[in-house]
Simulated assay, not measured.
Amino acid sequence: MDATPFQKSLADGRHALLQNMVGEWVGRTRVWFEPSTEPALTLLQRGHVRPMLGGRFLFHEYAADDGSRIHEGIALYGWHLERARFEVAWGDDFHTGTGLMLCAGAREAPGFHGLGSYPAVKGPDWGWRIELAQDAIDTLRIAMFNIPPDGPEALAVETLYRRAGTG
């Protein structure tokens, strides 16, 4: 019997690439409030990424320490086979308040990144882009970009993880 599209993806497609991110992670998160400046915050971060629903999704739970407070967050990552896009639901106690940021990648865009938006205090919504990259099996980069309505995107949050126990 032929494998289903999901089974194929889990064996050697986008879902297989997501499975490489499963594990315990430690690293550093930097936060920028203004583009082209030094980071406003640098935090130590620990994360746990686990598969959910037979590998259809990844659940990322993390805590970051700024020296005076622990910040917590969660994300659900997935690859939508029918729409051929990366999807994310993300929330934390620092950026998203009581809401979830929902992001989806463009159909033709390679890699794992999704675009969402959030309401500004005044004026039109701002954009937000989340990107996951894994250059080696023991590293993971999660980057988040702020996109003002009238300007180019700028790096807002960057987490550089290494697999726990790898040095």
Rank of each mutant, 00 (worst) to 15 (best):
D2Q: 13
A3M: 10
T4P: 06
T4N: 04
P5M: 03
F6H: 00
Q7P: 08
A11G: 01
D12P: 03
G13Y: 07
L17H: 07
L18H: 02
Q19A: 11
Q19N: 06
M21L: 06
V22K: 05
W25I: 03
G27W: 09
R28Y: 12
R30L: 13
V31K: 00
F33Q: 15
P35D: 05
S36E: 10
T37V: 13
T37S: 12
T37L: 11
A40S: 15
T42W: 03
T42I: 15
L43H: 00
L44P: 04
L44R: 03
L44E: 10
Q45F: 09
R46F: 11
R50A: 09
R50P: 01
P51M: 04
L53E: 12
G54H: 01
R56N: 14
R56F: 13
L58A: 04
Y62F: 15
Y62P: 01
A64V: 04
D66E: 09
G67N: 05
S68E: 14
E72S: 11
G73C: 06
G73V: 08
I74C: 11
A75S: 09
L76V: 14
Y77R: 05
G78Y: 07
W79M: 01
W79A: 00
H80K: 07
H80F: 06
H80A: 13
H80S: 10
L81W: 05
E82D: 14
R85E: 04
D93K: 15
F94C: 09
H95T: 06
G99C: 11
L100V: 15
M101C: 07
L102C: 10
A104I: 03
A106D: 08
A106H: 12
E108D: 11
A109N: 02
A109K: 10
F112N: 03
F112C: 04
H113F: 08
H113G: 04
G114I: 12
L115I: 12
L115P: 04
G116Q: 06
S117V: 10
Y118C: 13
P119Y: 12
P119G: 14
A120M: 08
K122H: 13
K122I: 13
G123S: 08
G123Q: 08
P124S: 12
P124W: 09
D125Y: 08
G127N: 08
Q134D: 06
I137G: 06
I137L: 12
D138I: 02
L140E: 02
R141Q: 13
A143D: 13
N146H: 15
I147K: 01
P148T: 01
P148G: 08
D150P: 00
D150Y: 00
P152R: 11
A154V: 04
L155D: 10
E158Q: 14
T159C: 12
L160N: 02
Y161K: 01
R163M: 05
A164R: 11
